[in-house]
Design a protein around this nucleic acid. Structure first.
Length: 448
DNA sequence: AACAGGCGCAACCGCTGTCAT
DNA sequence: TATGACAGCGGTTGCGCCTGT
């Protein structure tokens, strides 16, 4: 059994409490720097201090350690604390792990004394700023009506407003990244430098490498992490395998996500156009590399005409029997290389999955129910992606990523049928579905 | 100048999990 | 396996300084 602490205080010397005078600090520093190993009882005894070991330890950890970074918090640190707290809550140790040289106690005090009050005071400002931003959007950017990412939109405004309400006049330097946790997965995702062009025109991952574009004069914090457990509704029990905060500079407030305009109506032209453009790019590659190898293309009359007229545009398709196919609107039969579609989509889908996980984190406090629901769906999709065999056709519920992944996933698993909802129409098993909003609901593709 | 109240910060308290005995 | 000290964490307290009256 360990030696009891009282053993070294059995002469009942009254232990000091309260503030530490300079002499005691010097004794403790001298001891810790020269021979600082051992338990806290040893420290108090060997340093010649009439303090309890716990007090010595706290004094060293919170005040005397040479690697501590004293002084006021810089705006970047404030922003980081604000955002981490929005994700992690009062988990000061986890927050402190992201701020080099800051103690948990220091961060906690700073939060309780400064940031919490500032947030409270800016609540009303946030509301008014949010509405004024929407007004700005309506003039410079014709986004009106419902949004596909309403909560995300508000979160951006919240974070940005909070930051703007702080004193950022002294922050002319770019955000430091040295204080951030190392991340293996997400570091390069938001690298703002131009990325090497990808040769494969079908590869859409480039569209997701830096999904935020815009310029309303705001600051956006983007957090990336991976969730390793389905069952955790909160992030506290170390489910974060990788974590990264990306501070975008002033003037880059997001108006787009993955090439889609934030705030656009779900079925608006503005939203559809970028989707259609991407889809057309896909088709170009399909036509050039794979469709020309097809033996035959089959489908129901209506859907086949739709595909032919709308997308294929006179491409010399061979041998087109109008066979009726249950559960499917269009089947393309090709050679054995048909798994191309799955393989080339994986990277992009993973990007989208990452982005969705990021957004889920924003809901952990404001809407835990939604957070949990999203996480469940994403885990299912992530699991499917991780087990994806590039040599087999796999049903990827691609479109649900732009609506509610959890809802779509649960619906599909429960009923195994295509729902009537126009917002989501999963393809039959074994099909890669490429439509994003249900408009092209006859687009299930299979290559045999 | 004196006082009260607010505020920031350091330190303490109490709890939980871990580990040595 | 039981026990108790330790490490770590988050909440709370209290002291000293500042500011307004």
């Amino acid at each position: 059994m360990r030696k009891p602490e009282d053993k070294f205080n059995n002469n009942k010397v009254k232990l000091r409490k309260g503030l530490w005078p300079r002499e005691e600090d010097e004794k403790l520093i001298k001891y810790m720097l020269s021979d600082g190993q051992g338990c806290r009882t040893d420290i108090a005894r060997n340093a010649g201090l009439q303090r309890c070991g716990k007090s010595c330890r706290l004094r060293w950890i919170n005040y005397l350690r040479p690697d501590l970074r004293r002084g006021a918090f810089c705006p970047q640190e404030e922003l980081l604390i604000l955002h981490l707290h929005s994700i992690l809550g009062n988990r000061w140790s986890q927050i402190g792990a992201s701020l080099t040289g800051r103690t948990n106690n220091e961060i906690k005090n700073f939060w309780n004394s400064t940031l919490k009050k500032r947030l409270k005071n800016t609540t009303t400002i946030t509301t008014s700023t949010s509405s004024s931003l929407n007004n700005t959007d309506s003039t410079s950017n014709p986004i009106r009506g419902g949004t596909i990412f309403p909560v995300l939109h508000e979160q951006h405004v919240d974070i940005a407003t909070t930051y703007l309400c702080a004193d950022i006049s002294s922050s002319s330097s770019p955000p430091s990244t040295s204080m951030l946790c190392p991340s293996t997965l997400a570091v390069n995702r938001f690298d703002q430098s131009p990325r090497q062009h990808i040769n494969d025109p079908y590869d859409m991952s480039g569209g997701a490498q830096f999904p935020f574009n815009g310029g309303i004069g705001m600051v956006v914090v983007v957090a990336f992490f991976t969730i390793s457990s389905t069952s955790t509704a909160r992030l506290g029990s170390s489910p974060m395998a990788a974590f990264k905060i990306c501070l975008l500079t002033v003037g880059e407030f997001s108006t787009e996500y993955l090439g889609l305009l934030l705030g656009a109506k779900k079925n608006s032209t503005m939203l559809q156009e970028p989707i259609i453009q991407r889809f057309c790019k896909k088709l170009v590659w399909w036509k050039a590399s794979s469709l020309s190898l097809a033996r035959r293309v089959v489908g129901m009359d209506e859907s086949l005409r739709f595909w032919h007229d709308t997308w294929l545009g006179g491409y010399p398709l061979k041998n087109i029997p109008c066979e009726e196919e249950k559960n499917d609107g269009c089947i393309w039969l090709g050679n054995e290389e048909g798994t191309y579609s799955v393989r080339s989509c994986v990277s992009f889908l993973n990007e989208v999955l990452m982005a969705w996980k990021m957004f889920c984190a924003l809901f952990v406090d404001t809407n835990p129910k939604l957070f949990h629901r999203l996480c469940s769906g994403l885990d299912g999709l992530g699991s499917k992606l991780s087990h994806l065999d590039v040599h087999t056709s796999t049903n990827l519920q691609f479109d649900c990523l732009l609506s509610d992944p959890s809802l779509a996933y649960i619906h599909w698993n429960a009923k195994k049928v295509i729902p009537s909802s126009p917002g989501w129409s999963p393809p039959p098993l074994g099909f890669l579905k490429i439509n994003l909003d249900g408009q092209w609901r006859m687009s299930g593709i299979k290559v045999e």
